[in-house]
Amino acid sequence: MHKDERDPHTGYKTTGHEWNGIKELNTPIPRAILLFIIVTHLFALGYWIFMPAWPLGDTYTKGLLGADQKKRVEKEVAEAAMSRQAALEAIERQDYNTIVNDLHLMALVRENGKTLFRDNCSACHGAQGQGQSGFPSLADNDWLWGNSPEQIAKTIRVGVNADHPESRSSEMLAFGRDQLLQRGDVLDLVSYIESLSGKVPKNADSADSADSDGIALPKGQSIFAENCATCHGADAKGSTETGAPDLTDDIWIYGAGSDTIFHTIWDGRKGVMPSWDGRLTPLQQKILTLYVLGLNEEEQ
């Protein structure tokens, strides 16, 4: 089938080959392509001359610019750290009280704290620090471990039930599962605790539950005094020493509702707040402390 044919449309000859009806034209390579090849290859050549490029045994061509990505990144990181230091060193130097009263510094805290908080804390505490089931709100002026900047800073630094040697530790015992209390006792406690925060227990005024009616609350109170007061306090207002929460307000770590409270008392709880020592610099921790405090001012 070797026959020279001319394609009427383009005017070029075919190569004379044919496969299943497909022919090929013998069109020369367009000039633009040659130009394009030259440009890209010159670019590559130039780049090789200036940058590290070709291996030579156990070394490589270093390039005229002496570029080194590792050195460059180290330098840039150091420069960035220095510029941050310059901008934020006032926060590092001043004490909490001064900063809180300095509008300019607090603006810096909010600006930098927001990113730090959202990158490190919001997965547990929520983007606005509003908390979620199992993770306390940091914006409600209600504190497990105290409301002073120093106490908050310590929580951030060492964590709670964390792997830091100085970590705060706290635990709500599994009274039901570990058979410290009977099921009935726990139910009485649930009613009692709900009454503390102003909730009328569901069965308090129903006629058919005479045994719990009026009896549950005093009974719950005495069980509480025996088992729970050591940590939560006799008034159940909690203690920043043990990290046991106030049970008389309507603020819950694990959520309101008898089922949840029952579950807490039966199976116990042991929330973990990671330690940020070594993961965040002292300055970053300080910014976060002030930022978290600031969340509460917005609340008021």
Binding site: D7, H9, T10, T14, T15, I22, K23, E24, L25, N26, T27, P28, I29, I33
Partner: peptide
């Protein structure tokens, strides 16, 4: 149509 250019 035939292939535009065998060389390409």
């Amino acid at each position: 149509r035939p292939i535009y250019s065998y060389r390409m």
